[in-house]
């Protein structure tokens, strides 16, 4: 079976042969026995295409396998690898070392999320608020009749919400939001953008119930137009715009 072993001989990480390297500073913290976080520094080689996630995995492979990081798809689709990279919330798999223009790359866990360990944070609040706004089509006719196979939409109707449907639930917007930092009950930009995504969908009939949910003392009105959510969203969702459009319904400018 020499053939099979030949095929399986796969390169599983970037080779340590690059002439360029950066200092990767990783925030380390285990809430179970650390009082505060501290940085560990590693010198990591990189190529023009190396992502921050690959650099972290390089550290795990060659220097310290105990670094905690969450990732899955490595292609900005699963929303797992959000973290603060050189001070800004970004996806580690969607950020190239070369684009940061810095010899030092500092990675920290996302703000406004409780830390599990190192770079891995708890997503419970994000999932709770996301679920709270009923992120699904609400209709009276739950069963399709035999001659109706699908709910048709015109391209214009799709345009109304499609940008907001790109959300991957990475939480970077919630991490950047100043209200999220102090108001532990705030519904947050991620959930508000999703509330708009469904309210603006011509197939959906749940507008009134969703608007009622977000029209709360810790709901949509606790957004103060900072706009940082939209600046950091890696998928171009623009939660801040979704929030303003939703406000239009509540203030009577849209119906």
């Amino acid at each position: 079976m020499t053939q099979a072993s030949g095929i399986a001989n796969e390169q599983t990480s970037t080779p340590l042969s690059s002439s360029k390297s950066i200092t990767l500073r990783i925030s380390r913290y285990n809430p179970e026995h650390d009082d505060s976080s501290k940085f560990m520094e590693f010198s990591v080689p990189y190529e023009r295409w190396t992502t921050v996630l690959e650099a972290i995995l390089e550290v795990k492979k060659h220097f310290d396998h105990s670094v905690a990081v969450r990732y899955s798809c490595r292609q900005a689709t699963c929303g797992s690898c959000g973290m603060i990279i050189n001070g800004k919330p970004r996806l580690a798999c969607f950020t190239k070392i070369s684009e940061l223009n810095s010899n030092v790359v500092t990675v920290e866990p996302m703000n406004n999320f409780p830390i599990i360990r190192d770079l891995a944070v708890k997503f419970e609040r994000l999932f709770d608020t996301h679920q709270k706004i009923k992120p699904y089509l609400i209709r009276d006719d739950t069963e399709l009749t035999s001659d109706e196979k699908e709910f048709l939409q015109s391209p214009e109707e799709v345009e109304q919400y499609i940008q907001f449907a790109n959300c991957i639930k990475c939480g970077l917007c919630n991490s950047a939001c100043p209200t999220m930092a102090t108001d532990s009950s705030f519904v947050g930009p991620q959930a508000l953008a999703q509330a708009y995504r469904y309210v603006a969908d011509s197939r959906d009939k749940g507008k009134d119930s969703r608007l009622k949910i977000i029209d709360d003392s810790h709901g949509i009105w606790r957004c103060h137009f900072a706009g940082s959510c939209s600046q950091v969203c890696p998928k171009g969702v623009d939660p801040a715009m979704g929030i303003q459009l939703l406000r239009g319904y509540l203030l009577g400018f849209r119906s």
Binding site: T179, D183, S184, H218
Partner: peptide, 14 residues
């Protein structure tokens, strides 16, 4: 009221 609601949370406090 808005500032104070965002500063701290809790049923009684609010």
């Amino acid at each position: 009221r808005v500032i104070l609601l965002e500063l701290k949370q809790g049923r009684l406090y609010e």
